[in-house]
Design a protein around this nucleic acid. Structure first.
Length: 426
RNA sequence: GUGGAUGUAGCUCAACUGGCAGAGCCCCGGGUUGUGGUCCCGGUUGUUGUGGGUUCGAGUCCCAUCAUCCACCCCA
């Protein structure tokens, strides 16, 4: 309506039941990630702009048109992170973690920012939970990371998902392949659609993404990069698949799967919802063996993924909870206060209950009936009632909403009585 | 950046061919001086997104503008 302030386009408020859905997922995800050996890392939400330009890549949509970039008072160019991998790599180097033994495995969870047009399943501020495993080139680690992503979906009972797998080569084989592809495509540029023509020079791999039937037909005649890998990449891909087979992970090879970030090498994968809504890609990731070096570190292989929280929750629940029908959280004891003096009286004598159960003191000043209604909608098990009469006699009325029974309880015995009733109701 | 839809009460939506702006939900009060879910009665809530135009008369028709949603694109 016509309030003074509105939320920014592409942002959302999460409240009531929906917050509970988020907590439910986050709790499970943290547990799974710990079990797979990942430790949480919390990096800043803003970073030097250059970090993302160099890692995600100038020329990508994310960098070219979707970043929240601004100048600080000190004329420093700062960007709200559009993704977290670059930040984790930066933190890895800046904290001297390259000297730590073995593979470092981090997970993160938090908001990301991309300034594109909002749409179903697409927000300007959205949230990801993701993983980065830094320090090993083993294809077995790729499989473990993919298995971790699947475990995340299993933990929240997500169904109907497909794992798409590809290998986009490495600095040894990709340049030659790209050159060949570019030359081939340039020779028949007239047969491609306008966007594809523009891509031939800049990012020829993305030609495979085009949905245009004529372009697809054309590309169908050209071998995908998967068929042109060098020996090392071919072995790597074979071993990733083998390790996935060992784990019993089902996947579909998709030679057209190209991720839109420049830093990926070799393995790329995506987990998508099979049917229904658009924006069906719930999770994407892959190997980025060149990124650490590019950020100033020693050559260090790494692999990771990120999972969209909003998209995943949307996949889990057919209908988003209606905020209008939402309720504040459940309580154990609801305290109805009839008058201001009663509010003071109740607050003081109920304080001890907070040591072992959830207590709501109603300071609304509404009629008794309205307060009882709220007690019911908060699903309280017990109601304490205080009014002038109770203050005068030093008692409370204690009503059990399950049985409907009510009794007077001396104010000094409230704590013990409530504890006893709640305990025996389990 | 491109295209398509929609804007009416806090929410979801009605309102015929242009003719008194309504319903359900929610909320509040009463039925019970101070007692929940079900029930009954009553009540509050509006610059019909905004600004122009046509008309005796506009929520309805026209123009502009803003906002939101959806799709392309991209991605999570």
């Amino acid at each position: 309506m016509n309030y003074r302030y509105r939320r920014l386009k592409g942002t959302r408020d999460v409240l009531f039941e929906e917050v509970e859905q988020w907590h439910w997922c986050e709790d499970r995800w943290r547990e799974v990630l710990e079990r797979f050996g990942f430790g949480e890392i919390r990096t800043p939400i803003m970073e030097p702009t250059e970090l993302f330009v160099r890692s995600v890549g100038a020329g990508t949509d994310i960098v070219d048109k979707e970043m929240y970039t601004f100048l600080t008072k000190g004329d420093e160019s700062v960007t709200l992170r559009p993704e977290a991998t670059a930040s984790v790599v930066r933190a890895y180097l800046e904290n001297g973690l390259a000297r730590q033994p073995g593979t470092l495995k981090f997970y993160y969870i938090g908001p990301m920012f991309r300034h594109d047009r909002p749409q179903a399943g697409r927000l300007r501020q959205f949230h990801q939970v993701g993983v980065e495993a830094i320090g090993s080139a083993s294809p077995v680690l790729d499989a473990e990371v993919i298995r971790t992503a699947i475990a995340l979906f299993e933990a929240v009972d997500a169904e109907g998902l497909t794992v798409l797998l590809n290998n986009t080569g490495c600095p040894v084989c990709r340049p030659a392949y790209l050159a060949g592809l570019r030359e081939w495509a340039a020779g028949r540029a007239g047969d491609f659609c306008a966007t594809c023509r523009a891509r031939i020079a800049s990012s020829p791999l993305r030609l495979f993404d085009c949905k245009e039937p004529s372009c697809q037909a054309l590309l169908g005649t050209y071998p995908p990069i998967l068929a042109a890998l060098c020996a090392d990449c071919r072995d790597h891909h074979r071993d990733v698949r083998g390790a996935l087979d060992d784990l019993g992970v089902r996947y579909t090879e998709d030679p057209t799967l190209v991720r839109g970030l420049d830093y990926y090498t070799r393995t790329t994968f995506e987990i998508t919802a099979e049917e229904g809504r658009k924006q069906s890609s719930l999770c994407g990731g892959g190997r980025y063996d060149g990124l650490v070096e590019q950020c100033g570190g020693a050559p260090t292989p790494a692999v990771g993924f990120s999972l969209g929280i909003e998209r995943t929750i949307r996949h889990l629940y057919a209908e988003p909870p209606d905020p209008q029908r939402g309720r504040q959280g459940r309580v154990d004891v609801y305290v109805c206060c009839l008058g201001t003096a009663a509010q003071r009286y109740a607050l003081a004598h109920v304080d001890g209950l907070r040591g072992f159960c959830r207590v709501e003191v109603d300071c609304s000043g509404r009629a008794a009936k309205a307060q009882m209604r709220s007690a019911d909608s908060r699903r309280a098990r017990l109601v304490l009632i205080a009014g002038d009469e109770e203050i005068a006699t030093g008692r409370f009325q204690l009503k059990n909403l399950g049985t409907g029974q009510q009794q007077a309880v001396a104010k000094d015995e409230v704590l013990a009585t409530v504890r006893e009733v709640l305990a025996c109701e389990g």
